[in-house]
Each structure stands twice: as C-alpha cells, then as structure tokens.
C-alpha cells in the first residue's frame, strides 16, 4: 500500500514539475506559432487569436492566488482515485464508481476552472465586451486550456497503471468523456454563473458558498451521473469493455458537436451579457 502511493506521488511530482516548466514559458508558445507560419497562414490567424487569450489565461493562473488554487485542486483530484482503486472505501467498489473516479482524476482542473468561466475575467469584463473580440475565440481558448489540462492529468495519472491496465483504461475513457462532453457542459453552465471573482484573494477558494454551493453541485450532476449511467448500461448489458466503449463514444460524439455547442453558448453569452456586466460591477 505504501509503495504504490509513494511511487505515484513521486511520479506526479516529477512530471508536474516538468510540465509546469514547459507550459508556463510563453516563449514556447510564441515559437510554436512562428513555426506554423510557413505552413498555412489562414489556420495560423485563427490559432493566433486563440493563442493571444491562451497566453493571457496562463498568466491569469500563474499570477493570481485564486486561479492558482484551481491547479492545486486538480493535483488533489489526481489522488482522489486512490480511494477507489485501492479499495480503501468499501462503498466505492462497484464497477460503476471507476468511471466516477476517472472523471475526477482527469477532470480536476476542468471542473474547478471551467465552472467559473467567464467569472475569471470579471474584473475587466467591460474591456473584453467592448474590445475587438469574437466570443468564439474567447471560448475556444478556455476550451483548449481545459483540454490541455485534462491531457496532462491523464498522462500524470499513468501512475495508476500500478493497479492494472483496466484501471488506466477507465481513466482514459474518463478523459475522453471530459474532453468531449464535460468541457462543453462546464462552459455552458458557466455562462449562467455571475459571481465576480476577486482574483487577488484566496480566502474564498475553498469551502466557500461561491465555490461549492448546492447549485454548482447540482450542475455537476450531469457531469458525473451521466457517464456512470452510460457505463452501467454497457457494463450490465454486455461487458465492462462495452461500458467503456459507450462512455468513450459519448465523448467522441460530444466532440463532434463542438461547433454547435459553441454557437449555443455564444448565444447565451450574448443574451446574458448586460446582466453579467451589471453583476460583475457589484463589488463583493
């Protein structure tokens, strides 16, 4: 018991360090954009705008306590799976709980950061709303950030291979579902969240009614319950692998609807715009 845990901790620390080093260098992003330039200009233009926001979001996370805590949450959630896969908690031993764990292990950042889009930008929302910005570009930068974080979590979670291929397969399926479906659900729900965030204070990051109230918990139900139900259907109708397949297919299908979902979210953003600006103006 002690060996696997310490091994996992070790692995996570090593890989987390290297990813932080690579990810946070803006220079890395800039050169990437430059390399693409010669290949296809039109694509670069689109990537360029998204990269503009992406660079900003990385600075947002690096330089603000409240935003940094979402990275901590995702690291904590990485270990959450231990409760399930080690059999430490008896009630979690049913096969369906594996998917539940996998969603959390790979989606810590997605869930904790995504639920407050666009509140992260609340202190300068009027700027974003009057600048030369297309909603789609703004949204897609947040989406990419969540996707990248999910992929990194999935790689870090490879420590769970210790508990068998089957466990890691569940985690990969969870990641696919997170990227394909939950990333959309989170952005969608976020469009209705109008709580301004004071970036500089960390007081309210945990256990605060803003962060974990009944409403946000309720909103997270479809994110958790749906993949569990999908898995259960496949698992009990045929086999565990069929269960994984059903969840993965749902994830891929969600991914295919990305444009449609983004248009829908964009519409919500637009109709909620005045209310959101007004709500962000009300100081805590």
């Amino acid at each position: 018991m002690l060996i696997p845990i310490s091994l996992l901790v070790f692995l996570v620390i090593i890989s987390f360090r290297s990813f932080v080093k690579d990810l946070y260098l803006d220079a890395g992003l800039a050169t990437k954009a430059k390399n693409v330039e010669t290949e296809n200009l039109e694509w670069l233009n689109r990537f360029g705008k998204t990269a503009t926001f992406l660079k900003n979001d990385i600075k947002l996370i690096k330089r603000n306590k409240r935003a940094r805590s979402t990275v901590m949450v995702s690291v904590l959630f990485l270990f959450y799976g231990l409760l399930f896969f080690t059999g430490a908690v008896e009630t979690y031993e049913g096969p369906v709980w594996r998917i539940f764990a996998a969603i959390f292990v790979t989606g810590g950042f997605l869930l904790s950061f995504g639920q407050f889009v666009p509140s992260w930008d609340s202190s300068y929302y009027p700027l974003m709303m009057s600048q030369n910005i297309r909603y789609k570009e703004y949204l897609s930068s947040k989406w990419w950030l969540m996707v990248i974080a999910t992929l990194i979590s999935t790689v870090l979670a490879s420590g769970y291979l210790y508990y068998g291929w089957d466990v890691y397969l569940a985690i990969i399926v969870g990641a696919i579902y997170n990227i394909g479906v939950n990333s959309h659900v989170v952005l969608w729900a976020g469009a209705y969240v109008k709580t301004p965030i004071d970036l500089t204070s960390n007081k309210k990051a945990f256990g605060d009614k803003q962060a974990f109230n009944a409403k946000t918990l309720l909103l997270s139900l479809p994110k958790m319950a749906l993949p569990m139900i999908l898995y259960a259907i496949g698992h009990y109708a045929y086999s565990p692998y069929a269960g994984y397949a059903v969840v993965a297919v749902a994830g891929v299908a969600g991914f295919a609807f990305k444009n449609a979902v983004f248009s829908k979210i964009e519409k919500i953003y637009r109709t909620e715009k005045y209310k959101t600006i007004w709500a962000y103006k009300q100081k805590k």
Partner: peptide, 13 residues
C-alpha cells in the same frame, strides 16, 4: 476603442 474606468485594465499584466 475606449477607456472608461479600471475595468478596462487587466490588473495582472
């Protein structure tokens, strides 16, 4: 383009 108040600034840049 406009500058109305501090909500047009990004404080952490």
């Amino acid at each position: 383009s406009a500058f109305i108040d501090e909500t047009f600034l990004i404080g952490y840049l």
